[in-house]
């Protein structure tokens, strides 16, 4: 798994894949999708797919892929090496969503929430497999949200494919377990080798589990906070844990859409717009100036 492309610029998202085995391009395949790193406030979220010919599912099971959450990091690494070695019938692809990308997507003016982001990434990976010539026939997807709606969405997107969306699919379908392992291994490696472009000084390298309810992680967030710039790009700014710390400890920043935020508005009576002003009104500035937002300077 060559992660150099992502490691060189971990601000942007990255797609990487194995070569599609010849068998996958000639035989109907089952494809599993899973994610890693949805919950943490630190690091990327990784979506992974793994596929093999339907007829070879038994061979995949023989590699003893299991629910990746029950395995140790070292065990997952070993399993991934076995999957990667089975190049004749197993293929994989990963989409690494950088924490910066997650943060900016979720905080855009036209909000792009995590669910939509997740679904689109999964759809993108299925399409990538199809574009690579893989004869995808069946798709198995793990989900935390409502399975029926997501299944319907995928079926609409890929009407020729048999789609199964189920919670805990990683423990039901070997191809999803395999995808889970690919995603988890990728995330573990990326997080371990994370290069802080911000050149942090005097910051503890131990940030705990990376989960928002971990006191060690919260302490680390507070420690590495810059009052003007906030957190390093390793942090998902859009997570409420991060936002609360920013609100309490960082400098306030106002954007021109802050006015649309109900918490920023103070209710103003309509009548106040018609109230007589106490101060005498002076001639308004010529439109040449106000159209260009130019004002006379009275003080520096």
């Amino acid at each position: 798994m060559d992660l150099r492309a992502f490691e060189e610029d971990n601000a942007v998202s990255c797609l990487l894949d194995s070569a599609a085995p010849a068998a996958c391009r000639t035989q109907p395949c089952c494809l599993g999708i899973d994610e890693a790193g949805r919950g943490p406030v630190l690091g990327p979220m990784v979506y992974g797919i793994c596929y093999c010919p339907v007829a070879r599912q038994g061979d995949l099971e023989a590699i003893k892929v299991a629910d990746s959450k029950t395995l140790t990091e070292a065990q997952r690494e070993q399993l991934f090496e076995k999957l990667d070695a089975a190049k004749d019938f197993v293929g994989w692809a990963l989409h690494i969503l950088s924490p910066n990308f997650i943060s900016t997507s979720m905080q855009r003016r036209a909000k792009y929430n995590l669910n939509a982001l997740s679904h689109d990434t999964a759809i993108g990976l299925i399409q990538h497999a199809l574009d690579s010539g893989v004869q995808v026939a069946e798709v198995f997807v793990d989900t935390v949200g409502p399975a029926e709606k997501y299944q319907e969405k995928l079926k609409q997107q890929f009407p020729g494919l048999e789609v199964t969306v189920k919670p805990k699919a990683d423990s039901l379908f070997p191809v999803v377990s395999a995808a889970s392992i690919c995603a988890k291994v990728a995330r573990d490696r990326v997080v371990k080798n994370w290069k802080f472009v911000e050149a942090l000084e005097n910051v503890d390298s131990d940030y705990g589990s990376g989960y928002p309810n971990d006191p060690k992680t919260k302490e680390w967030l507070t420690q590495c906070l810059d009052p003007v710039f906030g957190f390093p790009q390793f942090v998902r700014f859009s997570w409420s844990t991060a936002q609360v710390i920013l609100e309490n400890k960082a400098v306030a920043v106002r954007w021109d859409d802050t006015e649309d935020d109900p918490s920023q508005k103070s209710a103003q009576s309509l009548l106040s717009y018609f109230a007589r002003k106490d101060t005498p009104t002076r001639r308004p500035a010529h439109r040449f100036f106000y159209e260009r937002k130019l004002e006379t300077v009275t003080s520096l």
């Binding site: 021109d256 002076r282 100036f289 937002k293 130019l294 004002e295 006379t296 009275t298 520096l300």
Partner: peptide, 24 residues
Amino acid sequence: QAALYLFSSDSRQLFELKAFHEEY
């Protein structure tokens, strides 16, 4: 009312000051 102006060196030239001012 008072406004800010600028005299060049030796007060040979007068300049008015304008500010491009957007709120955010």
